[in-house]
Amino acid sequence: MLKQTTEQTRLMNELINCPRELQKTTQQLSHIVHMQAKVSQAQQNNNDHNLTFELNGIDISHVSRGSSLNATARSLIRAAYGESASYNNLVPGEFDSLLGFLAHIHGLHAAAVFADCHSIKNSLQQMKHDINKKGSSSYSSMAASKQRTSTTIEIPSILHDDDDDDDDDDTF
């Protein structure tokens, strides 16, 4: 009897969570279908031979494919918005277009790229922090370089003072 009650309790818990999981999955699928429709429409409007892609009013279709979707997305953002760009520079709708163009560049089905959109978005958002790290890293390297330089300069002056003391000892 206890075993049956435990099993029924477990099943009830699964039933409680099922609508939330179903809604989440439905939203993800709806987003994928919506994005795939956008990509299909864009592909119908453009020939593959004359494909151009613009972000920020700049044609970035010349940017070559990177080693991963994230690397390519970062290159496209930098080409359109500059080296200090990140996800925050994109205007509404550009991220979806970017995902479609990534699918085209990498020769993947749009659904595969859209399924990975959270990873791509996180990578693009991280670009802002990477620049801050790079800036503080170069600042700390410059500080370390100055410290090494000042240490190098101080060593001869200490030796020079010791030489002066030796001269004074010889005089007495």
Rank of each mutant, 00 (worst) to 15 (best):
D96N: 13
T6K: 08
R65S: 00
S61L: 07
V113N: 10
I16H: 05
D166L: 13
A144K: 07
L22R: 08
P156K: 10
H129R: 10
S67W: 00
M12I: 13
M142A: 14
A42M: 07
S141P: 00
D164C: 03
L102F: 12
F101I: 04
E154A: 14
R65L: 01
G107R: 11
L51D: 02
Q8G: 01
V39A: 11
S136Q: 12
R78V: 10
F172V: 11
T149I: 13
S75T: 06
K133Q: 10
Y139A: 14
V39I: 07
D170Y: 10
T9V: 05
T152G: 12
S150D: 14
F114Y: 14
T171R: 08
Q126F: 11
K24Y: 04
A71S: 06
H31G: 02
E83M: 02
E154W: 03
P92E: 13
R20Y: 15
I131N: 06
L55F: 11
V113W: 09
L2D: 14
D170N: 09
I77A: 08
I105L: 13
T5V: 13
N132D: 03
N122E: 11
Q36R: 03
Q23G: 00
A115I: 00
H109I: 10
F114S: 04
H106L: 02
Q125P: 05
S86A: 14
Q28P: 00
T5A: 15
A42N: 11
S75H: 03
D48N: 14
L2E: 14
I105W: 01
N89R: 11
I77C: 08
